[in-house]
Design a protein around this nucleic acid. Structure first.
Lengths: 361, 361
DNA sequence: GAACCTAATTGAAACGTTCCATTCACATGG
DNA sequence: CCATGTGAATGGAACGTTTCAATTAGGTTC
């Protein structure tokens, strides 16, 4: 069905080599001949076969991007950054969604490697260090996204420790002394780092983390999980009685029994899901409970209670990562590994009571 | 660098054909031999070369999905549907973002065809009918996404005409008689259809569309464009004076001078952007202006004023599309083209004043 | 022990490109 | 008229698989 170079060649009355030249080295072929060949291509609707080309070349014009959740605006914004840069450099991006699932991630990595993509950008679900290392060793550059990498590879990240710290410092400054930390799996590096930052903020304030922080850990970083966390915070007998209910399902450092006056969610999806649930339960934000999120996705500003959040330069992140990756892929000699670390920034809005006075300690 | 089947074969002391059999027809090879081969693969870190495989097979295990905007949660939800189905069927998805730009779309289509993807799912920017037809003719199945296709191909869509109709009927029922229609480029089919639905609703109510509807057309369907539309609606001398300002930049049917009491935005991104701007300008929603969106993305419910919207079965849409595509790809004989049309559904929330009484006519 | 089966393995021919060393046609200068 | 040079086109090898007809080794059957 599909016409190949052979067909084009015979229709144009030239050798296949010439057709190839028209495609890849147009300057080497006489204008007249070139025109004939191009006409033939047009007539046959010839589309070069990428597989054959790649096979010969040993490498493709695609790169792979593996994210934790396509549904999270944070990642789509990063993806845009990656895509814009890649596009400009003549590459296409294969966007893969690991869904925070180990096996999906593994499967995608395998596919990408089989496709001989030019390189892989990934926010890994778990450490994955050895596996990624092997991929590198086999010749596919890997850049860690949104994660400070170890030596021997490039990475692009935002200082998550610091992000966690400024979020919690903000709450402490507002007078909060009982803070819940709603977090995803600690195996995800960002989660662990933001938590460390939170702890550090408390320590720096001369307070006891065990007394201040209550940890609630949820298995995913999406809105649904945020709602679950809200339920857990509100305790079993909740309903619309606000936080008046008793037992707080503390999974963490602090002794149960004292209710938090603020929550730090380690991403905005979590925070938005939590916020919605709090609204349904009649809990006032920030009156009864102040909320801080992370990522500053576009929708955070538009939430029922505009969400205070820690902003990350998402688009820049993606762009920088793509740049590093293609540099490594295209000029392996000159390339030297780099680790970009962007600075996070607090964006205070209503949900933390930026404007209203603080809740008593 | 990368080990090939030849290396595996010689290490295991067998012929390359046998290695291939281990991979593709394990049952044909003696368990002992198989083990030896597998050990060799492991030792060499062998990863089969997808290009070579595809070249031989003539087709790849990937399919392409081209959307208008990855940043729009509507599309990421659709993508999840596609991806889940594809994944289960053993396919990987190449997600492409046309960004509503004609040339980006064209470029991606080209790449996908060169890659010999198994099929293409697309929400086209413009009609593109002839070009897509040629792609089909060359042997790549194409399924139209979120758009009722013409004959001779599969498509999956939601009845956009009806969606537009129920949105505007809802506003009419609430007593509104001056309605602004904030819409994207009419070249995008959904935009045109939703508009037609809006017109129909007005006619069915026995009213004059020219008198009721004011059209504001923006060049993109995102939040920024929504904000621009808000500015246009508020008129030049606006600021925080609500709608008290004078000249309304009507681009459409209605004579200027009378200000709308309601807005129908043809997607939620537009509505959310508009909503934000209205908030900044001190316009009360739904008091001064009622707002209805379209898509019912997850964030619509969480907006400052929860957004009334027209819900589409996003995930189902993607899933159904992938199913049709793979059916066509895998069993071209039995396959017959189908056109799914899902029914949209109004989700009334505060932004249209669902609860509050209607604004006078 | 010849004749036949079956199961396992082999080797070579494709697949559609790109690359490169040749060949060709023709003009130029000696 | 031969040697030389130049620009254009050619033809075949190579890329790493899969497929398939052919071969081999062992086992059964008569």
């Amino acid at each position: 069905m599909a016409a190949g170079m052979k067909d084009v060649a015979s229709l144009a009355g030239v050798a296949v080599g010439t057709v190839s030249n028209v495609l890849n080295h147009p300057d080497l072929v006489r204008p007249l001949t070139r025109a004939r060949v191009e006409a033939a291509m047009e007539e046959l609707g010839f589309i070069p076969n990428g597989s054959a080309r790649q096979l010969r070349a040993g490498r493709s014009r695609c790169l792979g991007l593996v994210v934790l959740d396509v549904t999270n605006p944070f990642f789509t914004e990063v993806a845009r950054g990656v895509e814009d840069y890649a596009q400009a450099a003549g590459y296409a991006v294969i966007l893969c969604n690991s869904d925070e699932a180990d096996d999906k991630e593994r499967r995608y990595l395998r596919v990408l490697e089989e496709q001989r993509v030019r390189g892989i950008l990934i926010t890994p679900v778990h450490g994955r260090a050895p596996e990624l290392r092997r991929i590198r060793d086999r010749g596919t550059p890997v850049v860690l996204l949104d994660r400070p990498g170890s030596a021997g590879q490039c990475s692009v990240a935002v200082d998550d420790r610091r992000g966690g710290e400024i979020a919690v410092s903000h709450l402490l400054d507002l007078g909060h002394r009982r803070i819940a930390l709603v977090n995803g799996p600690l195996a995800i590096r960002q989660c662990a780092d933001r938590r460390r930052g939170a702890l550090r903020a408390v320590e720096r304030a001369g307070l006891d983390p065990a007394a201040v922080l209550t940890e609630v850990t949820v298995p995913a970083m999406n809105a649904r999980a945020g709602a679950v966390a809200a339920d857990e915070l509100l305790g079993p007998g909740l309903a619309s009685t606000g936080l008046a209910s008793t037992g707080l399902a503390s999974t963490g450092l602090a002794p149960a029994g004292r209710k938090p006056t603020a929550v730090f969610c380690t991403n905005d999806m979590l925070a938005l899901g939590l916020l919605r649930r709090l609204g349904q339960a009649g809990v006032a934000v920030p009156g009864d409970l102040a909320v801080v999120g992370y990522d500053d996705i576009e929708f955070a500003a538009d939430a029922a209670v505009p969400l205070t959040s820690v902003r990350q330069p998402k688009y820049q992140l993606g762009r920088a990562a793509a740049e590093l990756l293609l540099d490594e892929a295209d000029r392996p000699e000159e390339h030297e590994h780099r680790r970009f670390v962007f600075k996070p920034e607090l964006v205070a809005r209503a949900s933390s009571g930026e404007t209203a006075s603080a809740v008593p300690a």
